[in-house]
Every structure is written in structure tokens, then in C-alpha cells.
Write a protein that binds this DNA or RNA. Structure first.
Length: 429
RNA sequence: GGAGGGAUGGCAGAGUGGCUAAAUGCACCGGUCUUGAAAACCGGCAAGGGCUAAUACCCUUCUAGGGUUCAAAUCCCUAUCCCUCUACCA
């Protein structure tokens, strides 16, 4: 959420900045709502003030035993006016709120111009693409030999789910364990276990709601009296972890906060059929290790650079070639001010595929979350900045390991950092 | 599942209809003292919003949402969360 103050002061500048991401915003409509709000608010507060004063007069009159009948008569009329004005104001304010909640974040100045992923800018590349002097298979074919099974998943759930048994299930788990250990032991994150079902407030806090309900799986908890409570399956571990800090005032000495979590992610991906749908790439349920940081405003862009290297660290350790992309404004997610995507090379499909997305949200989420700290210098409460990044998407990492480390005999070389997690296994065959 | 109790500022904790945005303590900030620190003493200290050049001033907020009342932290209803006893249980 953008700051209301900023919107009031310089709505045109905000609208202009949002054009960069191809979000068009009706300035005139907002301006009218806003001036309406102002008029109504002043009126309402004046009426409220009047009534407060009169009520005090009545209180005093009563205390000294005077007759208050005529005073009560006067105030009745005032109350009617006040209530009318109040509900009017509420209406306007909720209208304004709806608009503000659906406005995306302003891109950072270092974000390239552009409309779609074609305009993203490659920042760096790492690793040598493997040379395969044999017929390269993709992970679906390779996986089938080691226990990756989509047909059984169709039976028990439907399309876009997977079942893994045996060696590949072990490899999948090994990847998760490795990532968690690396981030908590080497990169300085505190491991967190969190709920996979979250309430509406949490999703508003991180920006998935109100705009993107269609992407979520929604569940209903039925109470005894027929009331229902809505909970959503998390689309990413970012939601529960970032919301741990909702409505909190963080001690300055505790900053920065760094958490790593392993959770499944559930995405309905409504309507996103087409590309990349084969195999494990786009699933309704996948595992992810997620990094979350909460930092002071002046530290956030430095933190984004470092956080991204933590995700890169995993790719490098697993010997997976990748490139780092600076997303253009048009391709940025709703809440992000700047995002680096890491794309891993998939020789089975001859493409780079997104495996991590590292974003700085500035105070966009923190404002919704009311996540603040007390600045010692100013002695004021200030919003913190939030960041997160996948470190990494486990399913896609599995794909990358299979495809990059395949050998002519269809065996898979296990990267050395994983071997201890695989009971010492060096080659999977 | 049954029976009770509770939710107040950064924290702890008073407060049962108007003089309470809220005692007190801790924490925090400023000062006195001190070579320096601690202790002691003095002073300050909720958040959000409106208006404003900035003050002043005004409004809102005592878990949330409704209600009663001229007036609600305080009374009523509902929800959420927490605690105690009790039963059951992986």
C-alpha cells in the first residue's frame, strides 16, 4: 500500500511513476473523491466536536442538579446530522481505500523500463552450460526412471500434481534439507516453521488480497452454528513468515530480521495454461524454501543484493548454470519495487527457467502490516522495509539437477554438497 | 465436550457511565550530580488522522464488529484470541 499522504500531496507524480509499470490510474476521479473526503471529514469532525462539548455541558448541568430537558432537545438534531455525515464519510473513505489497496508499488529508479519479460535485463550469468554428446532428456523422461509419477497424481488429485517415490523423493528432500541448512548455518537466517493455512488479514498484509484471490486455494472451516471461517492455502512461505511480524514494533537492536522457512506453496494458476506446463515446472503444489528479511529503510537495497546472492549461493553449490535478471517495470509483481529473477538453465528444454524471485518491497507491505521500529535518532516510529526471495523453489531445482547432471547412461550425478544428504550416494542410477 | 476467568500505551498494570487518552511501575529520551559510568534526583514520553507555513486547535483509537445512551475503556450482544479447572484424546 502506498502512503495516503504521498497520494494526497502529489497524486500526479504517483500516477506518473505507476505508468512505468503500465498501471493507469484515474487522477481526476481520485482527486474528486479526495476533495470530497476532505470536505466531509472537516464537517463530520466539527459536528463531532460540537456534540462532545454539548455532552459535557449536559454532564455538568446534571451534576449541579439543573434541568437538562431543553439541552437534550437541542442535541437530538445535532446527532441526526452527525450520523448522516459520519456514514457519508465512511462511504467515501472505504471507496478511497479500495482504490489504494489495488494500487501496485512504485518501481525503484534502477528498474528498467519495459512492458513484458522481453524487456527484462540480464545482469549476470554464472556457470558453463554443460556439453552433452548424447541425446539429452528432459526431467519428465529422466524422472520417470527414478520415481517421478504424474499419472498416479492425476488419479488421486488431478492435473498439475505429482507423486514421487523412492530415489527421487529422497533427492527432493535432500535438496530441501540442504537449502535450509545452508541458509540457517551459513547465511545467517533463523529457521521458521509456520502454518500453511492463513487468514484474510495475512494475505492483505503481503499484498495477495484483495486483488489476486483467483490465484489462491480457499478453504472453509465450518463452525457449529453454521458460521464459516475462510482460510487460504499459502501461495508462498512469504505470507506466513512476513505476517509473523504484523502489528509489531521491532526493537532497533534486533534488526535486521532474517528468516528462512520451508513450506509447500499452493497456486491455482487460473488461466495460465500454455507454456512450461509439462512436468514439474508449473504445479498446484510445490515445495519452496523462502528467505524473508525485515530491515531499516536505508538498508533495503543493499539487503536485496545480499539476499539475491544467498539464492545464487545455492545454485552455485549445486553447480547449476543460471542468469540473473533485473525485471522491467511492466513485469514486476504487484507489491515489489524491484525484483531480481534467477533463471536456471534447463538443457532438456533449452531454456532458462525462473527458479528464484528476490524482491524488495520497500514499505509497501510494512504499511499494510503496520510493521515498524522506533528510530532512536528521531524517536519516532518508522515503517520497516521487507524483502523476500526463493532460496530456492525446490521442485524446479530438482528439475534442474536432473537435467543438468544427467549422463549418457541416464544416470544422474549427485552434486557433492548433496551427497551427505543422500546417504553418500554419488551417482543416482 | 462441560464450567469459569480474561484482552487497557513499548512492557507490566490501575481504572465499572461524564472531571480519564487513561493512575502507578518499568523501559525510553533530556537534564543535575560524577573524571566516566551506575545509583539518586528533576523534567519529558501513546498512536493514527484532520487543518496549518508551523504552532495552536480538533477528531479517532482501551482485541474486533454491532447495540444502549446526550455521553462508553466502563453497560448489552456477537466474534476472535488467551488462561484456569474438568472430560476426552493422536
Amino acid at each position: 500500500m502506498l502512503s495516503k499522504k504521498q497520494l494526497r500531496l502529489d497524486i500526479k507524480a504517483v500516477a506518473n511513476a505507476l505508468k512505468k509499470r503500465y498501471f493507469y490510474f484515474d487522477v481526476d476521479q481520485f482527486f474528486e473523491l479526495e476533495s470530497n473526503r476532505k470536505k466531509n471529514q472537516i464537517e463530520t469532525e466539527n459536528l463531532q466536536n460540537l456534540r462532545n462539548m454539548q455532552s459535557k455541558v449536559i454532564g455538568k448541568a446534571k451534576a449541579s442538579g439543573e434541568d437538562v430537558k431543553s439541552l437534550l432537545k437541542n442535541i437530538a438534531d445535532l446527532s441526526t446530522k452527525l450520523n448522516l455525515s459520519k456514514s457519508n464519510l465512511q462511504l467515501i473513505q472505504s471507496e478511497i481505500n479500495v482504490i489504494i489497496l489495488s494500487m501496485p508499488n512504485i518501481p525503484h529508479h534502477s528498474v528498467p523500463n519495459g512492458k513484458s519479460e522481453e524487456d527484462n535485463i540480464e545482469v549476470s550469468k554464472w556457470g558453463k552450460l554443460g556439453k552433452y554428446d548424447f541425446d539429452v532428456k528432459d526431467h519428465v523422461d529422466l524422472g520417470a526412471m527414478y520415481g517421478l509419477d504424474f499419472e498416479t497424481a492425476v488419479k488421486i488429485s488431478g492435473a498439475r500434481f505429482s507423486v514421487m517415490t523412492g530415489k527421487i523423493a529422497r533427492l527432493h528432500r535432500a535438496l530441501t534439507q540442504f537449502m535450509l541448512d545452508r541458509h540457517s548455518e551459513v547465511n545467517g537466517y533463523t529457521e521458521a516453521y509456520v502454518p500453511y493455512l492463513v487468514n484474510t488479514e495475512s494475505l492483505i498484509g503481503t499484498g495477495q488480497l484483495p486483488k489476486f484471490e483467483a490465484d489462491l486455494f480457499k478453504t472453509y472451516l465450518h463452525g457449529e452454528k453454521g458460521e464459516t471461517k475462510t482460510l487460504y492455502l499459502i501461495p508462498t512461505g512469504e505470507v506466513p513468515v512476513t505476517n509473523m511480524m504484523r502489528d509489531m514494533i521491532i526493537k532497533e537492536s534486533d534488526l535486521p530480521l532474517k528468516f528462512v522457512t520451508h513450506t509447500p506453496s499452493f497456486r491455482s494458476e487460473a488461466g495460465s495454461y500454455g507454456r512450461y506446463t509439462r512436468g514439474l515446472i508449473r504445479q498446484h503444489q510445490f515445495e519452496k524454501v523462502e528467505l524473508v528479511q525485515v530491515v531499516k529503510a536505508q538498508d533495503s537495497y543493499q539487503a536485496l543484493e545480499v539476499l539475491t546472492t544467498h539464492a545464487e549461493d545455492i545454485l552455485q553449490a549445486l553447480e547449476l548454470p543460471y542468469r540473473k535478471i533485473n525485471l522491467c517495470a511492466g513485469d514486476l509483481g504487484f507489491s515489489a519495487a524491484k525484483t531480481y529473477d534467477l533463471e536456471v538453465w534447463l538443457p532438456g528444454q533449452n531454456v532458462y527457467c525462473e527458479i528464484s524471485s528476490c524482491s524488495c518491497f520497500e514499505d509497501f507491505q510494512a504499511r499494510r502490516l503496520q510493521l515498524r521500529y522506533k528510530n532512536k535518532e528521531t524517536n519516532k516510529l518508522e515503517l520497516l522495509h521487507t524483502l523476500n526471495g526463493s532460496g530456492l523453489a525446490v521442485g524446479r531445482t530438482l528439475v534442474a539437477v536432473l537435467e543438468n547432471h544427467q549422463q549418457a547412461d541416464r544416470s544422474i550425478k549427485i552434486p557433492s554438497v548433496l551427497q551427505s544428504y543422500m546417504g553418500g550416494l554419488e551417482v543416482m542410477n
